[in-house]
């Protein structure tokens, strides 16, 4: 995807779109310089990425969590009430939000060794909340759904009314695979005899899943590489008068 700027303004006679392409291209080349050797240019690009990513996360969290859920409903109405009491139609502050604000502020007690135990309160609250949430959700959305998905017909009928061999074989293999994989993860008994053989088949299924996962990961990375090379060839090179054809910014 071309890294194009959304605006079409200019700086020193150059469009921000062209500047954006150059910035993106130089940073791309800086990162690829690592393929030759670890070097200062790569390290600069790497540290830019660290700083930019951390700031991006902080800004997005501010706009998506702090501003709409705390600042606008509590802080701003509180300030209005104190400094502008004449504003009769001012929104009344949502005082219940003082609780998460107080819990959030307790996190900073970590900076004071004498009172750092207070930071356990918000952590315990959030952990308890998600622990309570995950118990019924795990049962409903994982265990029951996966069990439902595993209850497959072993003698399915095809479109012509006869036995659909391929679907029946796949269904049988899937049910066996789930049982064998679960047997491998059953550690309350020694993996000997029948359990040992079944769990060994479970390992084969796991190897297939890991192999497929690895294959997909490799292809995803190669897809990213193709994307970056296409960007350099069809978006960046045309800006210095080299046109190779193919997909471009259009």
């Amino acid at each position: 995807m071309p890294a194009a700027a959304a605006t079409s303004s200019t700086i020193f006679g150059l469009s921000t779109e062209i500047i954006g392409i150059w910035v993106a291209a130089l940073l791309t080349l800086a990162i690829y310089s690592f393929l030759y050797a670890d070097n200062p240019v790569y390290k600069v690009a790497e540290h830019i990425f660290v700083g930019i990513s951390a700031a991006y996360g902080a800004v997005i969290l501010y706009y998506q969590a702090l501003l709409p859920k705390l600042v606008k409903p509590l802080i701003i109405p509180l300030i209005d009430r104190v400094w502008h009491p004449e504003l009769a139609d001012a929104t009344s502050p949502r005082y219940t939000l003082l609780v998460p604000m107080f819990l959030g502020l307790l996190i900073f007690s970590r900076f004071v060794p004498k009172y750092d135990w207070l930071s356990r309160w918000p952590i315990a609250f959030v952990m308890g909340l998600y622990a309570g949430l995950s118990i019924p959700r795990s049962v409903q959305e994982i265990i029951l759904k996966q069990m439902h998905g595993t209850m497959l017909p072993l003698l399915p009928r095809g479109a012509n009314g006869g036995y659909d061999f391929l679907t029946g074989f796949s269904n049988l293999l899937l049910v066996m695979g789930v049982i064998c994989t679960l047997a491998y993860f059953y550690f309350s008994a020694r993996h000997e005899g029948l359990l040992g053989r079944v769990s060994r088949v479970g390992v084969w299924f796991l190897m297939v899943a890991f192999g497929a996962g690895f294959g997909n990961t490799v292809m995803a990375r190669i897809s990213l590489l193709i994307g970056r090379v296409q960007f350099l060839l069809y978006d960046w090179l045309p800006t210095i008068g080299i046109h190779l054809g193919g997909p471009g910014m259009g």
Partner: peptide, 20 residues
């Protein structure tokens, strides 16, 4: 948004593509 599209996105994509 400009910084995100022209600095962070290309850097992230390139770093992950190095893994190839």
């Amino acid at each position: 948004d400009w910084l995100f599209m022209n600095v962070q996105v290309p850097l992230e994509a390139t770093i992950f593509s190095l893994l190839a």
